[in-house]
Design a protein around this nucleic acid. Sequence first.
DNA 1: CTTCAATGATTCAAGCTCGAAGCAAATGTG
DNA 2: CACATTTGCTTCGAGCTTGAATCATTGAAG
Lengths: 148, 148
Amino acid sequence: MAKVRSEAVRELCGLVNELAQRISDHVGTCASTLDLTEAQAVALRELTGPMTSRELARRMSCEPSNVTYVVDRLARLDLVERQPHPHDRRAKQLVLTECGTKVREDLLATLVVDSPLEGLTAGEQRQLHDLLVRAINDSPNPKTRTRQ
Amino acid sequence: MAKVRSEAVRELCGLVNELAQRISDHVGTCASTLDLTEAQAVALRELTGPMTSRELARRMSCEPSNVTYVVDRLARLDLVERQPHPHDRRAKQLVLTECGTKVREDLLATLVVDSPLEGLTAGEQRQLHDLLVRAINDSPNPKTRTRQ
DNA sequence: CTTCAATGATTCAAGCTCGAAGCAAATGTG
DNA sequence: CACATTTGCTTCGAGCTTGAATCATTGAAG
């Protein structure tokens, strides 16, 4: 019986992973139409305003060192700039360039068409949202506890 | 209003990604106690019996070329063997070695302790399961349509 | 049987990701 | 103030992942 339960958890993990994969694929497809890689697109998408690398890492659910890598490329493309942080000389503020702002808008526009999860009704989405939040907050992995 | 809706979808994608990340972290932690990497552990876990590379790729939600890479390492560790497929000379059958079988059992045992999603009740898990299946099957990304 | 498209696996290059180590700046403690 | 600790970012090495190209085998169509 306990066997069956753990089997169910395993299957559930597989489904979460598969859906995450689908989402990534969708972002990657949209990104390529703008000559961006998937990781670059994710960074651009999450850059809703000026923020530090650390904050962007949190939003991207990845390590700060990874943000350094991706932002390097975005900077090379003149889409993002690293500016000194107003209150903390260690930190840097990532800000979109004019060009970056435009590309980001194009990206957001393409991201909404044929997006995964569109098949779910608004109610189902809300349900899924709640379950995910609960799962994440109850998860015994305290690496990055979710806000709120 | 449509703006708000797409915003909700975005947040939902973020949550899916974050949960997937938590799950990966857990597997990685368990793997390291057995001197395995996370990817190796996932492959070992999904190798429920003899199967082709393609089948394993499907179970791991990754590309077959990736399986080649990971299985190379597992073979180097003498955990998995590539045997000729009985009916198709193109294909290879991946089978656990004696040692691999043992390591896999140890892995499965460690995977069940402190697993994410444990915080959810059985009912919630079932609910989540159904929502995920629906989301995946309705997803407009037809790369790997789920069975059943 | 012959041919051709599809399939299974692999190789390779390019890019992503993490964790450890390092440095500079900030914060806390005496 | 002096010092240790923490925090923000970066660098680097190792490993993962993908997609395109390749090769052998298979299955289907003529």
